[in-house]
């Protein structure tokens, strides 16, 4: 997993690439903590997430909650098919409240 970060209108945008699993959870936790502590707004782009497991999911849940507790905004965007599958499986869309874009099947 790699995290590419960029700033967009003074809001940090984190691009997570690769797997969000137990193998990468510790690293991701550390990064998320860092950003949530510093910024009142943060965007996580999940379009390049190849795989997400329970560790990845609960980390996102903890991060979302942490942000809310601090009055910060954590937005999840660009959910990859792997992420969508898990959100759907666990019925998590409402919890995160981010708009999900269902991939257009005709375009693969």
């Amino acid at each position: 997993m790699t995290i590419r970060s960029s700033m967009f209108n003074e809001v940090p945008l984190l691009h997570i690439e690769g797997e969000m699993t137990i193998y990468t959870a510790a690293l991701l936790q550390q990064q998320l903590q860092l950003y949530i502590a510093q910024y009142s707004e943060l965007e996580l782009n999940l379009s390049q997430v190849s795989d997400i497991d329970s560790a990845g999911l609960q980390l996102l849940m903890a991060a979302k909650r942490q942000a809310a507790n601090q009055g910060a905004v954590l937005r999840l965007t660009g959910h990859s098919p792997a992420v969508l599958e898990v959100f759907d499986l666990c019925n998590m869309a409402a919890f995160f409240g981010d708009p999900l874009i269902i991939p257009d099947v005709s375009h693969g």
Binding site: A25, S54, Q66, C90
Partner: peptide, 25 residues
């Protein structure tokens, strides 16, 4: 078929407190 599911995270600690490799779900 799972008709309805609620994911519970009541035991999920704060981000800073959690052990990323433990399961809280």
């Amino acid at each position: 078929q799972i008709v309805r599911i609620t994911t519970l995270a009541d035991s999920l600690p704060e981000l800073s407190q959690m052990d990323a490799e433990s399961c809280y779900l």
